[in-house]
Design a protein around this nucleic acid. Structure first.
Lengths: 225, 225
DNA sequence: CGAAGAGTTGAAACAGGTCAATCTACGTGG
DNA sequence: CCACGTAGATTGACCTGTTTCAACTCTTCG
């Protein structure tokens, strides 16, 4: 597709803010992006934190060309910048394009359903457990589930932000991580986590979920399964 | 569109269950439908409760023709039953159809975002306040905001179910409604609620939201704005 | 070496959940 | 028309998880 450009930004860069006139949307090639909104009484509501492969800002075409959230870079990104005007034309003119967008929207919708579910059915340690599970290779490849312990993963961004992403306070996150350690045989050192018993972690974290781990969805950012 | 039929069902009827082979999707003409899933440890997770005008079951086309949730009638419905196979063909063949579906999906997605926001930023009485606001005529017509007090509304289904919809226990709902009464000058008698000061209710319930009341979206079932 | 920010820990307050008892409204059968 | 049974709704007492606020530690980076 012609008319694209690559942008590179550092932590703290604001790609756009809520309500702004929208001209471009983005695809993340590397790094992490936070989507959020400000509440009327001043605090931030985190909508999602997206990794490589995800699109953001594209829903502005359905919102009178206004961004429905703000977007901030939280880990250095490379992102493809594309024209919303062209996207609009593509959606209208190319059925296959509209269709694939429809599919990705449906997938996202399902994730959001799961997200709501998790927030109301899981406690803090379990939510952290799911978050960690999503970072393992076993998340997308069921074959890796049986072998490969210990699994070592790195938290992709600040703990404070992970806490916000999971809908809890930093203090709660810290305490809940300690509790998770007591329950599931993991080792935590800074941002590095070693899982010594994958099955135990799954059993502990996913007992309140509506489906089994793993979900095998490559684009899944919100579910633990 | 040919090939449709009208179905009429009473409270308790299960339209379909999670995981079932999907052949039809539905549009609600009258009544209320509960979408839910069972968790691994046996309880129910309410996904949404839909009123007149909403579609359900249609996302099965993106889920290998399997229903991604169960659907139960909670207030007597008339619903249009349509073929998923034909929907699939329509989506592929008719760009305008795919497009309108894309739009409705985007709208739903936005609602879900708000839903998550509400669950983490609002307390129980505020969530009930928002729920009540959604039932007022002022929700869709900003002109009605200034005049027309007292506003009288009727709760559309059981309080226990409203509680589940809002992610809380029946006992919590009852207590939170009492607290709401103390804060906002409303009168509750059974399923009937009278709002004597609309502005006060909005101020109390929406202070933690990210946008102002009302949202003016005719199909909005999840936001309070 | 020192400042700043992130992370952790403790104590107290609070919201919501749980369990049990009671109350109420409403439809049924006598 | 009234007594009864049932399901929904409410209330009380208690418990648990999370938040809040404050103090302290650790890491990083100039």
């Amino acid at each position: 597709m012609e008319g694209y450009s690559i942008e590179r930004h550092n932590k703290g860069y604001i790609a756009f803010i809520y309500g702004e006139d929208a001209h471009r949307y983005y695809i993340i090639r590397r790094g992490w992006v936070k989507l959020y909104r400000e509440t009327l009484d001043g605090s931030q509501a985190i909508i999602d934190i997206l990794p490589r492969g995800h699109i953001f800002g594209e829903t502005a075409v359905f919102e009178h060309n206004t961004y429905p959230y703000s977007a901030e870079i939280i880990e250095p990104v490379d992102m493809i910048s594309l024209s919303l005007k062209k996207l609009n034309i593509l959606i209208q003119d190319r059925p296959d394009f509209a269709l694939s967008m429809l599919k990705s929207m449906a997938r996202y919708r399902k994730q959001q359903d799961l997200e709501i579910e998790h927030r109301s059915l899981q406690n803090a340690p379990q939510r952290i457990g799911c978050f960690i599970l999503r970072l393992t290779p076993a998340h997308t490849d069921p074959n890796l589930r049986v072998k490969a312990v210990p699994v070592t993963i790195n938290l992709p961004y600040d703990k404070t932000l992970i806490a916000a992403r999971l809908g809890m306070q930093p203090e709660t996150f810290s305490r809940a991580l300690t509790k998770l350690k007591e329950h599931t045989n993991i080792t935590v050192k800074g941002a590095t986590i070693e899982i010594h018993d994958l099955e135990a972690l799954i059993a502990y974290a996913c007992s309140a979920c509506t489906s089994d781990f793993p979900c095998q969805d490559l684009n899944c950012s919100s579910c633990c399964n």
